[in-house]
Amino acid sequence: MRFSLFMYCTVGRRAELEAGMAGRKPDLYQRMLGEIAEYARFADDAGYFGFGHPEHHLQIEGFEISNDPRLMSMWLGQHSKKLRVITCGFVSTTHNPLRVAEDIATMDHMLGGRFGVGLVRGYQARWVENFKIRDELNAVGPWNKDQPADIANREYFGEFVDIVVKALSNETFSHHGKHWTFPPAGMVNPHEHPVYVKYGQGVTAAMKIEQIGIAPRPLQTPHPPLYGGFAASMRTALFWAKYGGKPIVLTDNLKFYDHLCRAYTEEASRHGRTVKDGQQAGWGGIFICAPTDAQAQEWARDMMWFWQSWATPFGQGVPELLVGSPDTIARRLDQVRQVLPDQDEVILLIPQGLHDRGQILTSLELMATKVMPKFA
């Protein structure tokens, strides 16, 4: 097992969040950046595999102030040398897919081939509706599941992912879909430019733009590993099997997770992909490790308050709780290994921001020294 951390980019402790408008307070944001940098350095040295974060905007309350996914990824990369930096991820309805592909390739180089990237549909309506690039697209969640808005979003997302993967994987390409056409139909460069023809591809001598390509190509081949952010459905898992993406599934239902992985393998084979057992998805949950079970449960109170206050209204159920002493967490991971003997990546959702530096570093150190060696 390899262990990756995931944070929401919470700007303050519970009392600071309860005071209101925490996301607007520069001192809290500065402290958050310093703490994240310290956690990244520690995790890097301690042998953790990756460190991930989401994309969310307009977060004046401060519960999930992750903002631009590029900037936070570079902050994590600046303070680590080995960790896989996982943006999870670019919200499709608010980005141009060609620009996203270019950003991914560029970040992969700047991070020295340590980049992993998620592409997601968008569920927080307040910011998605303000940032979206198509008027007809909407955020999705339990309130519109399987309704026209959800169907349209899912259709758009499929085309978005297809374009990103094409751009990352090919020297040049064209795309003609429902939502995007690259290059625009009948595009002709308004002035002659011999470099396009002499040293490039996709442009005719008559300056007709027939194909385009991004530069640079990614450092990793064919592109950085793809993740599907916090998937909870079989349909999402099967979608990612086509592209070799790894959905992140935070669940305590190991039977469902095992079934999901088996279905993923079958679907991947239909697309000509061979997937090793344990590589289909990332499994995990909320993570708090303390010297004793009682202390871990006490520490978990603020995280559960956060979950009930923030995640539950979005329709998110409580995930797996990896909460306890090193022995307790090791026993649970051993149970997981009995059901999922080849599980590769375990995602640990940490209460960054809610807990102080000492609590977070204690959790990370206990995990790294007393638990992880048993599952190496």
Rank of each mutant, 00 (worst) to 15 (best):
A290P: 02
L364I: 10
G315Y: 06
L28N: 12
S325N: 13
Q295D: 14
L28Y: 13
Y48K: 00
E129W: 07
G245W: 07
D356V: 02
G23H: 07
H79T: 03
A15G: 12
D108W: 07
E61Y: 08
H179L: 00
S4Y: 10
L349K: 08
H53P: 15
W143R: 02
H53N: 11
Q338P: 09
F51G: 10
W305V: 13
L98F: 13
S174C: 03
S92Y: 04
G47L: 00
A149Y: 13
K25Y: 11
M304I: 14
R332C: 00
G353V: 12
H193A: 03
W180P: 02
L168W: 04
Q220E: 06
L348G: 09
H175D: 06
V117Q: 14
D258K: 15
R337D: 07
R31G: 08
L226P: 07
K208A: 15
S309C: 12
G228V: 01
G317F: 09
D27K: 05
K166G: 05
H176I: 14
I248R: 07
L168R: 00
G77C: 00
G52H: 11
Q124V: 02
Q343Y: 01
S174P: 00
G177H: 10
L366K: 03
T236L: 06
P184D: 05
I133P: 15
V203M: 04
V117E: 14
R301S: 09
V140N: 14
S269D: 05
G272L: 06
A43N: 04
G315N: 00
D252C: 08
G245C: 04
T312N: 15
I214E: 03
D252H: 11
V188A: 05
P184G: 07
T172D: 10
G12D: 03
R134S: 07
R217A: 11
R332A: 01
D103K: 03
P313A: 06
K198D: 14
N130M: 04
R235E: 15
G282W: 10
Q338H: 15
Q279F: 15
Q338S: 15
F42L: 02
E129H: 12
G50L: 02
M107W: 07
M303T: 14
N130W: 04
L364T: 13
R24I: 12
M32N: 06
L361K: 13
H95Q: 08
P247K: 08
Y243T: 05
N67F: 07
F375S: 05
E38T: 10
L354R: 01
R121M: 04
V128K: 03
